[in-house]
Amino acid sequence: MDHQPIEFLMGDRRGAHLLLRPAELDRPGESGDDWLVTEVVIAAGGFSGRFRAFLRAEELAGFRSRLATLHDELRGEAVLDCTDGWLRVAVSGDGRGGLVARCEATDDPAIDNRLRFVLLLDQSYLPGMIDGLDAILRRYPVAG
Rank of each mutant, 00 (worst) to 15 (best):
104 E>P: 01
88 R>H: 10
110 A>G: 07
130 I>D: 04
20 L>Q: 10
37 V>D: 05
139 R>H: 12
87 L>W: 10
87 L>H: 06
86 W>A: 05
46 G>M: 11
8 F>W: 14
35 W>M: 03
77 E>Y: 00
128 G>Y: 12
127 P>I: 07
7 E>W: 01
101 A>E: 02
54 F>I: 10
44 A>L: 08
87 L>T: 05
11 G>L: 02
29 G>S: 03
45 G>P: 05
44 A>M: 07
99 L>Y: 06
133 L>K: 09
91 V>K: 07
4 Q>A: 15
23 A>C: 02
62 G>A: 07
116 R>K: 12
119 L>W: 02
1 M>C: 12
134 D>K: 13
128 G>D: 15
70 L>M: 10
62 G>S: 03
116 R>P: 06
68 A>L: 09
50 R>D: 05
66 R>T: 14
10 M>F: 04
37 V>C: 06
22 P>E: 11
82 C>R: 00
115 L>E: 14
58 E>W: 00
83 T>E: 09
140 Y>P: 01
47 F>R: 07
7 E>P: 00
60 L>W: 05
128 G>M: 11
79 V>S: 13
88 R>Q: 10
76 G>M: 03
72 D>A: 14
144 G>S: 08
46 G>A: 15
43 A>R: 15
66 R>H: 10
114 R>E: 14
106 T>S: 15
78 A>E: 03
131 D>M: 08
84 D>T: 01
63 F>W: 01
21 R>A: 09
30 E>L: 12
90 A>Y: 00
75 R>I: 05
8 F>V: 11
132 G>S: 12
121 L>R: 01
79 V>M: 06
124 S>L: 08
107 D>Y: 00
7 E>C: 07
104 E>M: 11
120 L>C: 09
127 P>W: 10
52 R>C: 07
131 D>T: 13
45 G>D: 03
96 R>E: 14
25 L>M: 02
11 G>M: 02
32 G>Y: 02
84 D>M: 06
23 A>Q: 14
31 S>T: 12
11 G>I: 02
66 R>C: 05
59 E>L: 01
110 A>Q: 13
